[in-house]
Amino acid sequence: MCTGRCSRCIAVTLYPLVVISIICNIVLFFPGGDIKYAKDGHITEEVKYMGGLVGGGLMVLIPALYIHLTGQQGCCGNRCGMFLSIAFAAVGVAGALYSLTVAVLGLKNGPLCKTKVIWETPLEFSDNSYLTDDTWRGECTEPKDIVQFNTGLFGTLLATSCLQLILCAIQMINGLFGCLCGTCSDKGPL
């Protein structure tokens, strides 16, 4: 097994996950595609934590770039470089965990929405789970389809952060093998 090749595969897989996380977080600021809710401050609290932008975005992108460089032949592809990739992958794990936590909280608490006359999170303290019980979705009158909007985007953030977490953990193990055993020494293309 070539630890450098494995590093490149992990990094290349992390890039689209980072982009998906960032896009989901940005879109969450505009429920129904309307900017007025962000202007008025009627945004779900978990969106403001920017789990997808900071955690699954920047905190995974920087390690992905380093991990990619570690996998390049002749560039950081030594024992020291693989050791440093463990530390960078640990930062990626922390970012993915942050994104995962925010996504879980966003799904658990439900969206901020207008019910009859006030803005609140009516699904936060409900006995039934709004994710499985469709009758709760009618509680929110504005923004239109906010429950499905938040569920879809926070669900996507949850899935991408789980994949990022797994990939960064694999890189930590790969980096350990590369640090202890060395990287590939073949002269052919990786």
Rank of each mutant, 00 (worst) to 15 (best):
T135I: 01
V102W: 08
M59F: 09
V147A: 07
Y37V: 00
G110Y: 00
D40M: 06
V102G: 12
L14E: 15
Q72K: 13
V104I: 09
T132C: 09
L131D: 05
V47I: 11
G155D: 11
C75H: 11
Q171M: 11
L61P: 00
I173A: 11
G77R: 04
G178Q: 01
C2V: 10
V91S: 06
A169Y: 05
L14P: 06
G188H: 15
L190W: 08
A90W: 04
I118Q: 10
T121I: 01
T13V: 13
L97I: 07
T44R: 03
G41W: 09
I43V: 06
C181G: 09
L158I: 01
D40H: 02
I118F: 06
Q164I: 08
F29R: 15
E124H: 07
L53K: 07
E139P: 00
G33M: 10
E120V: 06
D127E: 14
L112N: 10
C181Y: 15
I23C: 07
C181E: 05
G51W: 07
L17V: 08
K116I: 06
T44M: 08
L131V: 12
E46I: 01
K48R: 13
N174Y: 04
G182R: 10
L165T: 08
G110R: 07
E46R: 01
D134C: 06
G77I: 02
C113I: 02
T115M: 13
I170K: 03
K114C: 07
N78P: 08
L123N: 12
P31A: 09
G77T: 02
L153Y: 08
L17M: 13
L153N: 02
A169Q: 09
K48G: 09
P122C: 03
H42C: 04
V147K: 02
F83P: 06
G41K: 03
L84S: 12
Q171T: 01
C179A: 09
L167K: 05
N25I: 05
P189F: 14
A89M: 13
L112D: 00
C9K: 15
C9Y: 15
M82R: 14
L65M: 15
T160G: 04
E142D: 06
D186K: 11
R137V: 04
T183R: 07
A169E: 04
Q148E: 14
G175I: 02
I26H: 12
V18D: 02
G92H: 04
G152H: 05
G138L: 06
V60M: 11
V117E: 11
S185P: 01
S161H: 08
L97F: 04
D40A: 07
C140Y: 02
S99I: 05
S161E: 01
E139H: 10
I10A: 15
A11C: 13
L53C: 07
T151A: 13
E120T: 14
